[in-house]
Amino acid sequence: MRIFISGGCKNGKSTYAQKMAKDQSNPPHPLYYIATMSAKDKEDEERIVKHQAERDGWGFTTIEQPRKIEEILDKHDCEGSFLLDSLTALLANEMFSATGDFDGSACERIAAGLEKVLNRVQNMVIVSDYIYSDAHIFESLTEEYRKSLAALDRLAARHCDVVLEVSYTQIITHKGRDLFNAIY
């Protein structure tokens, strides 16, 4: 299944996503973790180490792919089970360079890559972050980022078989309820 999962921060999305990716792994095809974080400082490095420790013992093969998501298709077994965590990081990496430059075409590029991936890979869990309910008028770059992430979310939701929202460890099924309930 292709599963899209989003929600607020620290509510258990990543843990659910890891479990679902593992559940639909199909040995001898690998269980892949697509690492999207590109460390910019020590804090990032520590976070990455923490994430790695959390995945320890799950049997994930890690793919470092902070940019150009479509490249996973050429380098890896497309019949494997993939976990992409997260769209949020993928977009940040392509939209804002380490030197602080802004790339306005990042969203379109990722959308095209993601569409290729979702048309080819059957078993994938995609994690995103719901950052759309702030009581704030953001400056234009942040607003552009939110708008772009929402566009990627909606594209992923269209292509996925199941769309889930996690609300404080509880799951709301927005799409593919029968499919999802048959398994969980």
């Binding site: 309910s133 702030d134 009581a135």
Partner: peptide, 13 residues
């Protein structure tokens, strides 16, 4: 729906 973020620092917001 603007109810889901953190409490804004700005009084107007």
């Amino acid at each position: 729906d603007i109810s889901g973020g953190i409490v804004p620092i700005d009084a107007t917001f």
